[in-house]
Design a protein around this nucleic acid. Structure first.
Length: 278
DNA sequence: ACCCGTGTTCGCTG
DNA sequence: TCAGCGAACACGGG
């Protein structure tokens, strides 16, 4: 599921679902999802009341209080992770790996088919101590994009710009889809070396990043399913909301003349229009 | 059977 | 020391 827009959507769901709610029970399957790997670790959340819901890049930072002490929950959704809300007695959704039962009679299920996502209880809700957050770049939605910093970092990069954008130390939250989408909006070829971008192109790129993230987020707000989960790209009946991603062979929606190409960079697909992305 | 997949981390190399 | 790159992780779907 998740790049920045999906994680931001999950954050808003969490806020709606859990604000002021107390955890009455917890459960976790033995799996790699818990970090460190003992299911009992979730027990520290029992009796705690959630009150703060933040996001940095693709990381969810959820804070709760119990008897005056803080406790946090860090959640990274990996490739296929999502949080789903069900009535507490209802059966768990497919691929459920952990859950928190709340005092309003609902359960929040963490579901993850491929098990690349991770959960971690954070004592004192001191998220700044998390190794997973160390070195993260600024969040392009929450903090905006610092053009001078972006220019300086890109000027030092020899990698193709598409791969540079996937480095979470540059900007936190851009993934494989958003990188292609942002470069398309900016009219920049994904194969260009980062250091060859001129100041005007970096400015267009920053604008493209913000615009693409916002557009995708608003798509999600519109595409809410019956249980508050996102009906995503691959789900039947959901149209691909992106301009180039997974559109190889189609006419470019930007210049209306080129044909979208798929190439492989760093072992992953990139999509672009050879005609309008110079 | 084979290839593909919205992410991160590890180990190797130059 | 470090940027860059491929492999690994795990489990489906086409």
């Amino acid at each position: 599921m998740p790049e920045l827009p999906e994680v931001e959507f999950a954050r808003r769901c969490w806020q709606r679902w859990a604000s002021g709610r107390q955890v009455t029970a917890v459960w976790a399957a033995p799996s790699r999802v818990l970090r460190p790997g003992k299911p009992a670790a979730l027990g520290a959340l029992r009796g705690a009341t959630f009150f703060r819901f933040e996001r940095r890049g693709k990381n969810l930072l959820l804070a709760a209080r119990r008897e005056g002490a803080l406790v946090g929950l860090w959640s990274h959704l990996g490739m296929t992770g999502k949080w789903l809300r069900r009535a507490a007695p209802a059966p768990a959704p497919p691929h459920a790996r952990a859950r928190l039962v709340l005092d309003d009679g609902h359960a929040l299920h963490y579901c993850d088919m491929r098990l690349f996502g991770r959960l971690r209880v954070v004592p004192g809700a001191r998220f700044e101590t998390l190794p997973e957050l160390a070195g993260l770049g600024p969040d392009p939605l929450a903090e905006g994009v610092d053009l001078a910093r972006l220019r300086a970092r890109l000027a030092a990069g020899r990698a193709p710009i598409k791969l540079a954008l996937l480095d979470q130390r540059l900007l936190a939250g851009i993934g494989n889809i958003q990188a292609s989408e942002a470069l398309h909006r900016a009219g920049i070829d994904p194969r260009r070396r980062a250091r060859t971008l001129g100041p005007e192109e970096v400015r267009r790129l920053a604008a493209g990043i913000r615009a693409s993230l916002r557009a995708t987020l608003s798509e999600f707000e519109r595409a809410v399913g019956p249980d508050g989960d996102i009906r995503y790209v691959e789900e039947p009946g959901t149209a691909n909301p992106f301009a180039v991603y997974d559109r190889a062979g189609e006419r470019c929606r930007r210049c209306r003349q080129g044909t979208i190409r798929r190439i492989v960079q760093g072992g992953r697909s990139s999509f672009f229009c050879p005609r309008c992305q110079g």
